[in-house]
């Protein structure tokens, strides 16, 4: 029944968001995006300066829901097997037993994804795409829900391995937290003067509720016209001068799903153009690869997507 299902989706979201906001103040926009990404079934990349609360957001999100959470800190000496797990020979049984790596969890926080070598990065990204891990010829499926929050620092460039552009597609959206306003920062100081508020977070949504949240987005309606609009936006990125690699149909899919998720969060039963426009930059910009010439001319991917959104006639 759509009526009750949708309202329950909204209430679930509200509960989780309120929970997170107890810890993360002044970041309601980022929380909204993160939850939309989560509900839409995609993964998020948070690129932000150090200390803005990326890890806290992931942890709080995980703790608000009754699901498992693991964290990996990427370092240059990390092996792919440190992520996926290893088969270890058990001398007693004379068999190889598979020990699961940290990837077998519901929410996986990957800190500083650009610190590990490209081989390790691709191991993670392949697993994210296929939702399964192949070890010694055996396929081990990942959990459901499976949600990766990856973080990276834009400031440090020494000793980092930037994610290959073709792999950036795996992340549904990229967002940033940014610094909060003065009052909010003061409030953070107040809140953390005695312990960390995250300790007080208790789960407010069960595993079942979370799964139903994800199912409900399929019930959200999107009109043909808006699908055309999404495809027009994504196609336009391929024709912009200075863009070496435009957005793929994966981007259109991600945009549609995330828009539906956002709709659900807002309590609407159909997608409106405003939802699509709100998400366009976050979903599309990180997938674009700019020509170095264009980059040195001052163009950024966000700029390109913003211009496309402003310039494309929107269905009214």
């Amino acid at each position: 029944m759509p009526g009750t299902g949708l309202s329950s989706g909204r209430t679930i979201y509200r509960k989780i968001a309120d929970n997170i906001e107890k810890v993360m103040r002044g970041q309601s926009g980022a929380i909204r995006l993160a939850l939309a990404g989560f509900a839409g079934g995609g993964h998020i990349l948070l690129e932000d300066c150090p200390g803005t609360g990326k890890t806290t957001l992931a942890k709080t999100l995980a703790r608000s829901m009754d699901i498992t959470f693991k964290r990996i800190q990427f370092t240059p000496d990390l092996l792919p097997s440190d992520i996926t797990g290893v088969s270890i020979f058990d001398p007693k049984e004379q068999v190889f037993r598979f020990h699961q790596g940290p990837i077998f969890t519901n929410i996986l926080l990957v800190d500083e994804i650009n610190r590990a070598s490209p081989r390790t990065q691709s191991a993670l990204l392949e697993a994210m795409a296929e939702r399964q891990v192949s070890i010694d010829g055996q396929l081990h499926p990942l959990e459901n829900p499976f949600f990766v929050i990856a973080t990276q620092n834009p400031v440090e460039s020494h000793g980092t391995y930037p994610l290959p552009e073709g792999q950036m597609d795996r992340f549904a959206l990229q967002s940033r937290l940014g610094y909060v306003s003065t009052q909010e920062e003061v409030a953070i100081l107040t809140a953390q003067s005695h312990g960390h508020p995250i300790e007080a977070i208790r789960p407010c949504a069960t595993r079942q509720e979370v799964l139903s949240l994800r199912q409900q987005i399929d019930d959200v309606y999107i009109s043909e016209e808006l699908k055309h609009y999404i495809v027009t936006l994504v196609k336009a990125t391929r024709a912009v001068p200075g863009v070496r690699l435009g957005a793929s149909p994966r981007a259109s899919l991600a945009l549609m799903k995330t828009a539906k998720a956002l709709c659900l969060i807002d309590g609407a039963d159909f997608v409106t153009p405003d939802h699509i426009q709100e998400l366009a930059v976050a979903v599309i910009a990180h997938r674009l690869a700019l020509d170095p010439q264009a980059r040195f001319a001052g163009r950024t991917a966000r700029q390109v997507v913003e211009e496309i959104v402003h310039g494309t006639p929107v269905p009214t």
Binding site: T272, P273, D274, Q277, H310, G311, T312, P313, V314, T316
Partner: peptide, 9 residues
Amino acid sequence: RQPGETFRA
């Protein structure tokens, strides 16, 4: 209205 502007915006 700008071409890329929705009614709400």
